[in-house]
Design a protein around this nucleic acid. Structure first.
Lengths: 132, 132, 132, 132
DNA sequence: GTGGTCTAGACCACT
DNA sequence: GTGGTCTAGACCACA
């Protein structure tokens, strides 16, 4: 079992259990956590995050419903197998959401679709420069 | 005074007052509503949208705080002049953030920049279809 | 809004929230509760059943995830539309579960499949007699 | 003493000790295990199943309470004589209950008695396939 | 030790 | 009024 790097914004409008969920999900999708890995126990995580047991319970419970983990009463919670296509489709979905948001914001700013394409290229360019 | 075209998703997770706000904002930014134009009264709008007066009050109140409208007690609410450049730069910023996120998520999903452009066009297409 | 007839076995090994869920589900599937009907509020139900608010919350939350109700914050919880095919498939599923259990129990008792068929006919017969 | 064929679903919602119990019971009822036969020791079984000794202890303890086995301190656990008729009638009762439920659910789903018979055969078929 | 459920309060945002 | 979240305990069954 590895220690999870979970950072909580206690004052955020995003519920704490949601933050825990999303960060574990992200770790699964980025392959940081892999199949059959044992997660910290509900109580341990609650202690670590200085949060109520009910809160971590809710997060783990939701993750089980969404198919990311299995919980075995009396033993612990384990990462489930997620297949590559599922992960890819998740990321494509995120990409689409981001692009849709860009189109929306851009339209308010009065940008044409052509200008959006130009902007996209520019940002991609900058990204490469940074990586170099 | 013109009748506002406001469409509410009563069961959305986005608060109704927020939906009203955003749609009025968008109308202002798209010049559909122009300076000094009189908005429907809080009570009239509440009746039209079959919504509590508290809800429309909250929306108008927020819009006033954000500087989009001005309330003249006893007369009504009027659209204020908006500082174009400020608004525009704000939204361009949002656009850039969204595009950068799209590039990032897309790269994880293994999408090339070309595929991103194609996706952008597709989503723009779909957006037009919906509006028709 | 109608009062729900929910009977709880507080000492059962079946969790209370599960009992609530199942009884509401059953009411939906039997068309006792119909589309758009307003359910008792989480708090009202908690008072009625002399149960913690968290417990009714959990039940309603699960029902929303499973698609039986919609909850609208600040307004209440409503029965969602369920289509006939969905209901039928649910009941067929229950039928299969019951038959599978019968096969299992029957095999332990040493019954052949033929005897099971005979038993099925007998019970069906008795059922008709009762109805007459 | 014979080696028990026990297959455990470690992540099932059915407790492991329950799974062990049920499989031993089934073996007794099917005459696979017969009177006075010596069962593997609690510790041996725990090793074989890679399970805590507490778990096998619980299973054997329950079996003794239910009258299926007898524990002789210092020697081991033996299968007891089972009262055939009592057991059989119990299971036939369960079978009838399950069939009655199937008839009821089936009638809601609009199934005829003929379709129920067909369903029964299909499920019996599938059961045999799984066992092969 | 583990997870599962439950309580009896609380505060918050929204209608 | 409504639902959403959260706490800080508790008891239970299981491993």
């Amino acid at each position: 079992m590895r220690v999870l790097r979970i950072v909580l914004a206690y004052q955020s409008s995003i519920p704490i259990y949601e933050q825990i969920k999303e960060q574990i999900k992200a770790s699964v999708l980025s392959r940081e956590l892999s199949e059959n890995e044992l997660l910290p126990s509900i109580r341990q995580l609650a202690r670590d995050l200085k949060v109520s047991v009910m809160t971590t319970t809710r997060a783990y419970n939701d993750l089980e419903i969404e198919g990311y983990i299995v919980t075995v009463p009396g033993k612990g919670c384990y990462i489930k197998k997620v297949d590559d296509d599922f992960i890819k489709s998740k990321h494509i979905n995120e990409t689409k959401k981001a692009l849709t948001l860009a189109i929306h914001q851009g339209s308010i700013a009065g940008l044409t679709i052509l200008e959006l394409h130009k902007l996209l290229d520019e940002l991609e360019e900058q990204r490469h420069e940074k990586c170099d």
